Simulated assay, not measured.
Amino acid sequence: MPVKVAHICAVPSSLKFLLSDQMRYLEEQGYEIHAISSPGPYQDDIIEQLDGRWYPARISRSISPLDDLRGVWDVARVCARERFDIVHTHTPKGTLLGQLGAHLGRVPIVIQTLHGFYFIALEEGSLSRRLVHALETFTCRATSELVLSQNAEDVARLLREGVCGPDKAQVLGNGIDISRFKPRDFDDDELRRRREAVGLKPDGPVLGIVGRYVLGKGYRELCEAVQLLAPRYPTLQVLAIGARPTSERPEEVFLPDQDPIAGERFVCLYDRQDMEELYRLMDLFVLPSWREGMPRSSMEASATGLAVVTTDVRGCRETVTHDDNGLLVEVRNSRLLAEAIAALLDDPERREAMGRRGLQRARDEFDQQVVFRRVADSYAALLKRHVRA
């Protein structure tokens, strides 16, 4: 019988956009893959991919003790019924509720991918930061047999704080489908036509940003930077692409095209499946996130030959080396963000050289197949350990 593995996320969009290729790879290796998440957009895509092996659970991104207990119970019932061999959790709430439910459902192997600590983006010293830190530490220390971290800095933190040892916390990395992305290879007339087709004006520099429409992705800071840049670059535009907000807390949502000052310079697209073509409409990629695990969007931008301006936070630092394939700026500092963007807009040769180095780095370091093999090897090692036990 095949080994049964359940991946758990808060929402189906994470299963689709973060894990669908990984789940497909694991199926090719002989694992029987299942998925658990709250209902929502893209659940039908996951149901189709997994031949119906998707199960709903009340996993909300917001903190609601009663609903969270129900979510734990939902996961526990599915795990007890399906008798999974491995439960692999992702995202903060998916990990917390999923791991508790998996243990209640008596799953023998429970692991997590750490997509970046969430507490780091919260206000220093705040009650919410201390609470989230405690919960994230708890899942790493007490409920996970293995923690696969997307970035090395989070592993270093776990080891430094004594949360777990090097046998339990390992660097997984992150990757993309390198074959899907390639630099722009059409002339200026075709570029104008394609830009107009998505709602952009045909001429002028185009910045790009890809990410959920939430404050934590740095959209407010980008709006402020664009406002500072507007007098110098009157034709500047921003192409933003993200999932339509559905499960986010209302206070976290930020739609840049509705900004009263800079909004008119933004074209916002939702739920696109043609990212490999949209990157090729950009002149420079910007990701001013407050926190990241290891951002796929900046890797995809590099694989398209774009220079990247991003924040000097862990995760982002693993995809961009300052003054090599892009620039790093202080987080939540719109003035420095504007200065970095201007520096590269004013120097096309420097920007294009960074793009070429980023393209080579993507080909050398960001292939998702390497990550998938690490996951499969981790499963095999854990299964072997349990057989011996």
Rank of each mutant, 00 (worst) to 15 (best):
E300I: 10
R296Y: 15
L337C: 05
V308F: 09
A307S: 09
L328I: 10
L328C: 02
L345D: 05
C316V: 09
V286S: 08
V329P: 08
G293T: 10
P348V: 08
T310H: 14
R314S: 15
N325I: 00
L359M: 13
R335V: 14
V329K: 07
R356C: 02
A303V: 14
V309R: 04
R317Q: 03
G293C: 02
E318M: 08
E349K: 10
L359E: 03
T304S: 15
E318Q: 14
D323R: 15
L306H: 05
E349W: 11
T310G: 12
D283M: 07
S289H: 12
G305W: 02
R280W: 09
M299H: 11
T310V: 06
G315P: 12
G293Q: 10
L344P: 06
R291Y: 03
S334C: 08
M354T: 08
R357P: 01
D323Y: 10
N333S: 15
A343E: 14
H322Y: 00
R356W: 10
P348H: 03
W290F: 15
F285D: 09
M354E: 04
V329D: 07
P295D: 06
P288N: 05
V313A: 12
A307E: 13
A303T: 06
L306N: 01
R332S: 04
G293L: 05
M294N: 11
S302P: 00
E339F: 01
E349D: 15
L328N: 12
M354V: 08
T319F: 02
V329M: 12
N325W: 08
L337P: 07
R280Y: 07
L345H: 09
V313L: 05
A340F: 01
R317P: 02
R356D: 10
D346V: 01
L281S: 01
R291T: 06
E352A: 07
T304K: 05
R335K: 11
R335D: 05
H322A: 06
R314E: 13
M354H: 04
A343T: 14
L337G: 07
V286E: 13
A303R: 11
L336Q: 15
R357L: 07
M299F: 04
S302F: 00
A307R: 08
L344R: 04
L328Y: 06
N333G: 07
L344M: 09
L328M: 05
M282S: 09
V329Y: 03
